[in-house]
Amino acid sequence: MTAIIVDDENRHHETLGKMLKTFCPNIEVLGDAYSVAEAVDLIEKHAPQLVFLDIEMPGGNGFSLFEYFDEPPFEVVFTTAHDLYAINAIKYAALDYLMKPINIKELQEAVSRAEKIISKKNGDISNQKIDVLKSNLKLEDKRFTKIALPSSDGIDFIEADFIIRAEAERSYSNFYLRDGKKVLVSKPLKEYESLLEQCNFFRIHKSHMINLNHIEKYVKGKGGYVIMNDGSHVDVSVRKKEDLLNRLM
């Protein structure tokens, strides 16, 4: 599998290059770029299958690379040190990223996932992920609205406010939508908690997160329960009751 590394710091090129050579010998690094402009030239020259893309770079961050490709002909693994906003944007789009300093096991897992996508030629899904990323990054208030939910037969790209509630089911999650459909996601609910909280969701129980925009009624009780506008009843845990009522007030 061919790749390029895009990063403005030479030490990161050297470190990642050595890690790939030692721990991911199936990767052939075709070249190094130190800016988005150089990356565009390398991609057009070598057509790599995978791009390791730093986010924070002078002259435009890594996201600006996608302004040059309507349908990127490569998979991407982002690399970043600490940019929470960027990480959230990547998570909402279900794209892959590595935190610096890069962990060997996480690098191998990211490469393996990219290899599977490339071997299955799932370019359409990859492009949809990039579209979600670009759509969210255009929002001036930086409040992301669209989220990618990977299921057994692909990925659903859904507006967060179209989700009424989410329910944990062991290592899976069920997302209940306004049109009555349910999406079973192959990740635990805790993976989505911080993302959903930014979209006015609230965890009212260890097994449930609800969209506060879709509450019809709160019914009193020890913990009580809420009635959602799809008619579903969801229990409120005793320890979450006060926080929920404060939010509703």
Rank of each mutant, 00 (worst) to 15 (best):
H208K: 08
L53V: 14
E193L: 10
A93E: 00
T22G: 02
A110M: 02
S126C: 06
I163S: 00
S126E: 00
S126G: 05
L184F: 07
V51N: 01
M57D: 10
E109D: 07
G31N: 13
D141K: 14
Y92E: 01
S151M: 15
S237V: 13
I5M: 01
E167V: 10
K100P: 14
V76S: 03
K146H: 09
D124S: 04
K18Y: 03
N127S: 12
C199V: 01
I147C: 00
S237N: 09
G154V: 09
T145A: 05
S237A: 12
Q108N: 08
L30K: 15
F144I: 03
Y92G: 12
T22V: 07
E242I: 03
V226P: 00
D7W: 06
F63I: 14
Q108E: 11
H82T: 06
G223A: 11
C24V: 02
L184E: 12
E140S: 13
L244W: 02
L189G: 03
S186M: 10
K116C: 11
D179I: 03
T15Y: 08
E28T: 13
P25E: 08
K45A: 04
G60D: 10
V219H: 05
E75G: 01
L50H: 06
S232Q: 14
I227H: 06
F201L: 01
M249P: 04
L50N: 05
M209E: 01
T22Y: 05
M249T: 04
H13T: 06
F162T: 06
A114H: 02
I102A: 04
S171F: 08
G62Y: 07
V29M: 01
K190L: 14
I125P: 07
V183D: 12
G59Q: 08
D32W: 05
E193V: 12
V76H: 03
L212M: 15
E197F: 00
E71S: 06
V238E: 11
I158V: 13
A114G: 11
R178L: 05
N213C: 04
S171V: 01
G221Y: 10
G231I: 13
F157H: 02
K105W: 04
S151R: 13
L53F: 05
P48E: 06
T2F: 03
H208Y: 12
K220S: 12
D7K: 02
G62R: 13
E159T: 09
M209A: 08
D32C: 08
L139V: 07
F175Q: 02
Q49R: 01
I87A: 13
E191I: 03
C199W: 02
N136D: 08
L244S: 09
I155H: 07
S207F: 11
A89Q: 03
E191W: 07
S135L: 08
E109H: 00
I87Y: 12
D124R: 09
F175D: 14
E56R: 15
D124M: 14
D70I: 05
I227D: 08
I155W: 06
I163L: 08
K142H: 15
N246Y: 04
V111R: 13
F52M: 05
G221E: 06
L149S: 09
K45Y: 00
N88E: 15
E44Y: 04
K146S: 00
H13S: 07
I117T: 15
R239Y: 10
E242N: 01
L20C: 00
C24Y: 02
R165F: 10
G62H: 13
F175M: 12
Y225H: 14
